[in-house]
Amino acid sequence: MVGAAVGLAMIGLSVVAIWLVIVVLPNVGSRSKRSPFGKLYLAHFRDRNQMMAQCVSILFIAGHFTLFSYLTSYAASKGFFGPHWEAFLYAVFGSSGMAGGVLAGILSDLAGRRLALVASPAIYLVTTLLLCVSESSIFFFASLSIWGCASWSISPIVQSDIADLGRSPSDIIIGANVTAMHVGVAGGTVVGGRLIANYDLSVLPIGAAGLAAMALAAAILSVRTSH
């Protein structure tokens, strides 16, 4: 319940922040020195292809935090509990996440933004389902390493995809994407909290996979409409 309340509060703050950027920021300062950023953000949010890519981030990160917010408890339900297992759990996840950020940039450069945008949520979806069925320590932590790698791959890929469209300045793209990510963080925390409250820990990967599937669908649609 606490996680759900915090998540809802974060969503509310995100909405307020977006409103401030779009409505208030353009009117700050004198008429001759008004910031153009509010109008640039508004143009960004109105662009269908750019917003579709941002939706990939929101859904992907929401799926990730549906499980990640409660990862310690989920791992414990699989039998991996105690300080030593927890330390190993986050060592594997942390190192995999760092690798994911690097590999995402390489994948986007070598394979192209369209393939990378679809591949990232697809890999994440598969590894989330593998975590659901993992029982042995080797299988679980192997799946966790790929899952962690995929989980941190989406931001550079989405930012690269939108930048290649050439419709918004880079600072607008990054700012909007950071906002999208944190909306996903809040939303995923709420979803995970509600799943635990209404069911149990075992359904967390299923909920995460559902959101990841929606992110994959959004990625495919984004690629198709950006041609």
Rank of each mutant, 00 (worst) to 15 (best):
V23N: 15
S77G: 15
L204Q: 00
F141S: 05
S136V: 03
G192Y: 10
E135M: 04
V223P: 11
S222K: 14
A197F: 06
S134Y: 08
L110F: 15
G94K: 00
H227L: 08
S202D: 09
I206G: 03
P169C: 05
I220G: 02
F65T: 05
M98T: 15
A119P: 10
R224M: 12
A163V: 08
A176I: 04
H84K: 14
S153T: 11
A91R: 01
N27Y: 14
A219C: 07
A217N: 01
V6E: 04
D171I: 04
I138S: 04
R114H: 15
I173G: 00
S170I: 12
S30K: 12
H182G: 07
R224H: 09
L42Y: 08
Q54K: 05
A104I: 04
L144W: 01
V185S: 05
V178D: 11
M52P: 09
A213F: 10
Y124T: 09
A43K: 13
V56R: 15
V15A: 06
Q54G: 08
P36K: 01
Y74E: 03
G112N: 11
A212K: 01
L40Q: 06
A9M: 08
C55R: 08
P36E: 03
Q50C: 12
S143G: 08
C149Q: 05
D164Q: 13
L71T: 01
C55D: 13
I157M: 04
S35V: 04
T225M: 14
A99F: 14
C132A: 12
F80R: 02
S134N: 05
S69E: 05
Q50T: 09
V23T: 15
F81N: 12
I196R: 02
P26C: 05
V178R: 09
C149P: 13
N49Q: 15
L125S: 04
M214C: 14
M51R: 03
W19I: 08
N27T: 11
A197Q: 07
M181A: 10
G97N: 02
I220C: 11
V178P: 06
L201H: 14
R114F: 11
A9W: 10
N27G: 13
G38F: 03
Y199A: 15
R224D: 05
F68A: 07
L144K: 01
S155Q: 13
A208D: 03
P83K: 03
D47K: 02
I138Y: 00
S226M: 13
A4T: 11
W152T: 15
E86G: 04
A111V: 04
V223I: 10
V185H: 09
S151E: 11
G12L: 02
L13N: 11
A122M: 13
F37H: 09
V190Y: 06
T127P: 14
L131T: 01
A197K: 07
S120V: 13
Y124D: 10
M52Q: 14
W152A: 12
I196C: 02
L117I: 12
L129V: 14
H227K: 14
S73I: 03
P156N: 12
W19G: 08
S143L: 03
A212P: 10
P205F: 11
Y124M: 13
L195Y: 01
P36Q: 01
L8G: 06
I162E: 12
S57Y: 04
M181Q: 10
M52Y: 11
V2S: 07
A218I: 10
A99G: 14
G79Q: 07
S57L: 15
V56K: 12
S30A: 07
S136R: 09
A9E: 06
Y199G: 05
V15F: 05
A62L: 01
V6W: 04
A99Q: 06
A212I: 02
